[in-house]
Design a protein around this nucleic acid. Structure first.
Lengths: 236, 236
DNA sequence: AGGGGAACCTGTTTC
DNA sequence: AGAAACAGGTTCCCC
């Protein structure tokens, strides 16, 4: 058995299992396409780019080329829960995107870059299709963690900043949310090299690591850098 | 003669000469305004801020204050080539800006901070104007060089990278393009901390300085960092 | 008024 | 080498 190539039975992960026995009257799902999620797809842009060849094959926009009217895409997830997304064509970037509704899906499923979103469909009476949206963890993702930590760049590069790393304790399975934070304590003089972006938040990208210097309200003895490889999830 | 204040005859620079003889039937160009370009104007923001007094005098937005509909500004350069820019008012910054199309102009004309962009117009039949856009090098710019080096940020911040600066030898007047490069030799181990972005180019933003590590085809004894404060031009 | 979302834009990469 | 696609931004509107 090659668990990295065969579909996983992902009860807690939301994927579909193709190894389930086909019951009588069970609809036949046709796999349409998958997309490995980019950092942008799960980031703050709140949109999923649908690769053009798949978009035009499976989700043709009504009205042809002239009327680029937005439409909605209604899918079901693995639990049968409906998800409605706004589906548009952005002429500026010549790309098809899911916008409204997508960020909720990302948040609820706690998707990370490299995770794969899967689209399927099944014929229904009347000639149409019922759409399904699913997902699975990226290759190498741990089964036990909601999401494994990203491969952060070597923190040794930060030796000028005297890092006091504490990682691994920020992954919580209790709150239903995930954090990917590490914390570094910096000497007061160190942060002078970071260019000011605003009074409350300065970002320094250093060796591929985003350093977000937050000066919280109230005086703290030390300021705090947020070190993240690509994304952070904060509890609401 | 004050060559730094009188318009230059810029055959190779693209500026207009006001000392050309006025031919019969030649249109009369009215100088509207100039703007010395800021680093942001030629940087990655891809926009030119039009000083408000000039924007409201010469380029009033149609529709008054309510309809802030973007419009386009079509100009000709010194060669008669058309340039179309998107022209908008950004309420967030209370400023008038040229956006789309501007970065192409900057790149093609190889504009640098301090260079001056010039707007002129000429009446045409029907009561309208034909617009012209030109530019000239900044004060003190060498005639022989396409562009002088910018004031790079203090390189002392790079002391961890053992810089071996050599500047001034990378400005070529032969190729018709401009470089703003300095070169740092890095120890082999130093570049390991830079995250891979592609096989050929890795970018490291360090203390506000973009470090572009290029691994040129063929093995070189040392790799080369491109250190630029805001923008780089590479020969094609 | 502030934050999330919709639309717009561009450089890089790829084919 | 030219064009297409898209990843990753930005701006700004709307609630």
């Amino acid at each position: 058995m090659k668990p990295e190539t065969s579909p996983q039975h992902c009860q807690s992960h939301g994927g579909w299992s193709s190894s389930e026995p086909l019951l009588p009257h069970q609809e036949i799902r046709e796999h349409m396409f998958e997309k490995p999620l980019t950092p942008s797809d799960v980031g703050k842009l709140n949109r999923l780019v649908i690769p053009k060849q798949h978009a035009e094959k499976y989700f043709p926009l009504q009205g042809g080329s002239t009327e680029t009217k937005d439409q909605s895409l209604s899918c079901e997830d693995e639990a049968g829960r409906p998800w409605r997304f706004r589906y548009s064509y952005w002429s500026s970037s010549q790309s098809y995107v899911l916008t409204k509704g997508w960020s909720r899906f990302v948040k609820e499923k706690m998707l990370f870059p490299g995770d794969v979103v899967v689209f399927e469909r099944a014929r229904v009476d009347g000639g149409g299709y019922r759409l399904y949206i699913g997902w699975r963890r990226r290759r190498g993702a741990s089964e036990n963690l909601k999401s494994p930590p990203p491969n952060l760049p070597a923190i040794a590069a930060l030796d000028g900043a005297r890092p006091n790393m504490s990682s691994g304790d920020s992954y919580s399975s209790l709150t239903g949310s995930a954090k990917q934070d590490c914390h570094c304590l910096l000497q007061a003089g160190d942060e002078a090299v970071a260019p000011a972006r605003s009074k409350r938040l300065r970002t320094l990208r250093l060796f591929g690591v985003n350093l977000d210097l937050r000066t919280d309200s109230g005086n703290r003895p030390s300021e705090q850098f947020n070190v993240s490889g690509y994304r952070e999830y904060i509890d609401n």
